[in-house]
Write a protein that binds this DNA or RNA. Structure first.
Lengths: 202, 202
DNA sequence: ACCTGAACACCGTTCAAGT
DNA sequence: ACCTGAACACCGTTCAAGT
């Protein structure tokens, strides 16, 4: 017995992760206003100043939450895009499907991720995380240009068009539906029409 | 002299409008977390419970702020779209230009407008305001179908595609720029490629 | 190093009371 | 009707102190 490593803290093996998880739970259930350091500390049976060691301020916790989200999304996107050897269209649809799945699972977190990036005083770490998350999507478009599926132009900007549309549809749709269409159908519909616009003209 | 109408309140001609204006100022400068009923009241030389007559709760103030934004945006859109007798393309570009101008002028308010609509317990009044704001855009697409500029389909869904893209570009771009391109150029670029996709095929 | 508890200034909301 | 001031429970942040 006596396996407890000395590295582990007093109450938790990883207070940082526990706080982040509790914060996301609060974010998804009651909005960003319902995130309270004191309430999270209470739910973890820890003094209300304990999280201070990991997050110097509440803003630092909110930033870490957004960065965590970008890293999660980026991992999912690159896993799909780098492993698959399917056609450009199929891979683009797989990528948008990943985005949609993430949006349906963590709607409030996704909203917070973008809002956080828009703060005038957003940290460099946060901006870097957001760019990295979409880097595999940019690579997809660069490859699409080589295979003749995408018109010429800066792939970073071209990739922005369908990504922005998906993000916009998520934002515009109400709770994942609009006029009876599910978000998945909406995105497929929009992606199809945009694809036609990005394909070299006949 | 003695012009002061009896209708006017004790301190303000219109406390409601003054509170809304102060709230938007706080929203744009310090984020949604910086909106404080007590601080707003202080800045208006009014007791901290005075706004309660106009906004029963802080959430009511936040909702009113979003509704106000939708009404403002809707007025600007319909003014452009109903008066102009230009071609479909020109009117679509005018409409997106209005959106971009609004986004650059009130970035935090626009973000709040969409976030508010996404709350699980969003009020019916708020949802109604958001639909009404975009109704003239839907009409534009219906007319575009009559003139052969837009493919067949539900105009309400078709109109969503460019609107969502513009909204997404606003969200995705950092402080109105991306890789040196201004938001206006980005939107024109994306609108052009989407337009090609929404035009009946050759 | 990591955590605690008291203290400080602030907040939203409620309520009895004033004009 | 519209506004006030005191009271309540809560919050984020700071700080000296414990192990």
């Amino acid at each position: 017995m006596a396996k407890t490593p000395a590295k582990r803290a007093y109450h938790h093996g990883n207070l940082r992760a526990a706080v982040l998880q509790a914060a996301e739970h609060a974010l998804e259930n009651g909005g960003i206003g319902s995130i309270s350091l004191r309430e999270i500390s209470r739910s973890l049976n820890v003094s209300h100043t304990a999280p201070r060691r990991h997050f110097a301020t509440k803003q630092a916790l909110l930033d870490a939450l957004a960065i965590d989200g970008y890293e999660q999304l980026g991992r999912m996107l690159s896993r799909i895009l780098l492993q698959s050897d399917s056609s450009f269209e199929v891979r683009l649809q797989q990528a948008t499907a990943v985005l949609v799945r993430f949006a349906l699972k963590h709607p409030a977190l996704l909203g917070h991720m973008f809002a956080a990036k828009h703060q005038p005083d957003a940290s460099a770490e946060l901006l870097e995380a957001s760019v990295l998350a979409l880097s595999s999507g940019v690579r997809l478009f660069a490859e699409g240009q080589e295979t003749g599926d995408v018109i010429a132009g800066d792939p970073e900007i071209l990739a922005l068009v369908p990504f922005a549309t998906v993000q916009g549809l998520i934002v515009v749709s109400n709770q994942g539906t609009f006029k009876g269409m599910g978000l998945k159908e909406l995105v497929e519909y929009a992606t199809h029409h945009i694809l036609v616009g990005l394909r070299p003209r006949c």
